[in-house]
Computed example of a mutant assay.
Amino acid sequence: MSLTPDASGVFPIAPTPFNPDGTIDWTSTERLFEFYDGIGSDGTTVLGIMGEAPKLEPEESVRIVKIAVARMPGKPVIVGVSAPGFAAMRSLARQSMELGAAGVMIAPPPSLRTDDQITGYYAQAIEAIGTDIPFVIQDYPLTLSVIMTPAVIRKIVMDHSSCVMLKHEDWPGLEKISTLRKFQAEGSLRPISILTGNGGMFLDFEMERGADGAMTGYAFPELLIDVVKLQKAGSRDAAHDIFDAHLPLLRYEQQLGVGLAVRKYTMMKRGILASDAQRKPGSSISAKAKTEVDYLLARVAKVDPRAKV
Rank of each mutant, 00 (worst) to 15 (best):
L189C: 10
R190G: 01
I242S: 02
P191C: 12
A274K: 13
P221A: 09
R270G: 06
G199F: 06
L174F: 12
P248L: 04
G213E: 00
M215W: 04
R209L: 09
L189N: 05
E175K: 13
S188K: 08
Y265D: 02
G259V: 03
A185W: 05
L250V: 15
I225F: 11
M267W: 08
F243C: 01
G217R: 02
L174C: 11
L260D: 03
K280R: 13
L230R: 15
S161V: 14
D237C: 04
T179H: 07
P191L: 13
L195N: 00
M165T: 10
T266E: 00
S275C: 08
S178G: 15
I242L: 03
D244C: 05
T179F: 03
T179Y: 06
P221F: 10
R263E: 09
M165H: 13
K176E: 13
G173N: 00
Q184W: 03
M207C: 08
D170T: 14
T216G: 05
F243H: 04
I194Q: 10
L166I: 15
G200T: 01
P191H: 09
I192F: 06
L224T: 11
Q231V: 10
H160P: 03
E253Q: 12
C163R: 00
T216F: 10
K182F: 08
G210L: 01
L249K: 05
Y218I: 15
Y218W: 13
E186P: 02
D244N: 05
K176H: 15
F220S: 03
T196H: 08
G259K: 01
K269T: 09
D204N: 12
E175D: 15
L250H: 11
L250T: 09
K229I: 06
